[in-house]
Simulated assay, not measured.
Amino acid sequence: MDLEQRIRRLEDRNAISDLVVSYFLASDDDDSDGVAASFIPDATFSSSGVLNATGRDAIVEFIKTARSYMGLTVHTPHYVQCRFESDDRATGLVGAHLELVLGGTSVVGAVRYVDSYVRDGEVWRFASRDMRTVHIAPWDEVGAAFASTTPVRWPGGEAAASDFPRKS
């Protein structure tokens, strides 16, 4: 790669990191237009490998419906790891912590988003997002849940294994 290509790649990494932050802020702020602007028209959104929605409008509706059961939320990204497939396509892994009120219960946890990104004109957008849970539990259960083999404890659901269990 020449210097111009290397600079462009750095700018692209920055733009993808900004996309991640913009999506989290839009989600936390109930900004449906901001959520929509994050995705290409035929994008997909999944949770733990299960497809939740296909298409920008369906993703916005899925997020709006999920958020109707939530109170205050804080999505905090910690890193964005990108791998470029071409000048206009990349994949990524985003590590983040979630703090949210779900059905009146305050929960905290860690997730990783398995993403694919595409350049749409001069803007990077999500082509797909798959939110995978490392651990999550009500605040008063985090210590016990995190130390167990079933650290995924969404309120009202069955305790489950992590999408990223520790390898022996």
Rank of each mutant, 00 (worst) to 15 (best):
Met1Gly: 15
Leu3Lys: 10
Leu3Val: 14
Arg9Asp: 00
Leu10Glu: 10
Asp12Cys: 01
Asp12Lys: 06
Arg13Asp: 07
Ile16Asn: 11
Ile16Tyr: 10
Leu19Ile: 10
Val21Asn: 03
Ser22Glu: 12
Ser22Tyr: 02
Phe24Lys: 12
Leu25Gln: 09
Ser27Ile: 05
Ser27Leu: 10
Asp28Leu: 00
Asp31Ser: 00
Ser32Arg: 07
Ser32Tyr: 04
Ser32Met: 06
Asp33Thr: 13
Val35Glu: 09
Ala36Asp: 14
Ser38Met: 11
Phe39Cys: 05
Phe39Leu: 06
Ile40Glu: 14
Ala43Arg: 13
Thr44Phe: 00
Ser47Lys: 12
Ser48Thr: 08
Ser48Arg: 12
Gly49Pro: 05
Gly49Lys: 11
Val50Arg: 14
Leu51Met: 11
Asn52Glu: 15
Thr54Leu: 05
Gly55Ala: 11
Arg56Asp: 08
Asp57Tyr: 03
Asp57Met: 04
Asp57Ser: 15
Ala58Ile: 02
Val60Pro: 07
Phe62Met: 08
Thr65Asn: 13
Arg67Phe: 08
Met70Ser: 10
Met70Leu: 06
Gly71Asn: 10
Thr73Pro: 06
Val74Cys: 11
Val74Ile: 11
His75Cys: 00
Pro77Ser: 12
His78Phe: 13
His78Cys: 03
Tyr79Cys: 08
Phe84Pro: 01
Asp88Cys: 04
Asp88Val: 12
Arg89Gly: 05
Arg89Val: 12
Thr91Lys: 11
Val94Glu: 07
Val94Met: 06
Ala96Gly: 07
Leu98Asp: 14
Glu99Ile: 08
Glu99Asp: 12
Val101Trp: 02
Leu102Glu: 06
Leu102Asn: 08
Gly103Met: 05
Ser106Ile: 05
Val108Leu: 12
Gly109Trp: 12
Ala110Ser: 15
Arg112Val: 08
Arg112Gln: 05
Arg112Ile: 07
Tyr113Lys: 02
Val114Ile: 07
Asp115Trp: 12
Ser116Gln: 12
Arg119Val: 03
Asp120Lys: 00
Glu122Val: 10
Trp124Asp: 07
Arg125Asp: 01
Phe126Ala: 06
Ser128Lys: 08
Ser128Leu: 03
Arg129His: 01
Arg129Thr: 09
Met131Tyr: 03
Arg132Asp: 00
Arg132Thr: 11
Thr133Lys: 01
Asp140Arg: 12
Glu141His: 13
Glu141Gly: 02
Gly143Cys: 01
Ala144Phe: 04
Phe146Gly: 11
Ser148Phe: 05
Thr150Ser: 00
Thr150Asp: 02
Thr150Phe: 01
Pro151Thr: 10
Val152Phe: 01
Trp154Val: 05
Trp154His: 02
Glu158Ile: 10
Glu158Ala: 15
Ala159Ser: 09
Ser162Lys: 09
Ser162Glu: 08
Asp163Pro: 00
Pro165Ser: 04
Pro165Lys: 10
Pro165Tyr: 09
Arg166Leu: 03
Arg166Gln: 01
Lys167Leu: 11
Ser168Trp: 01
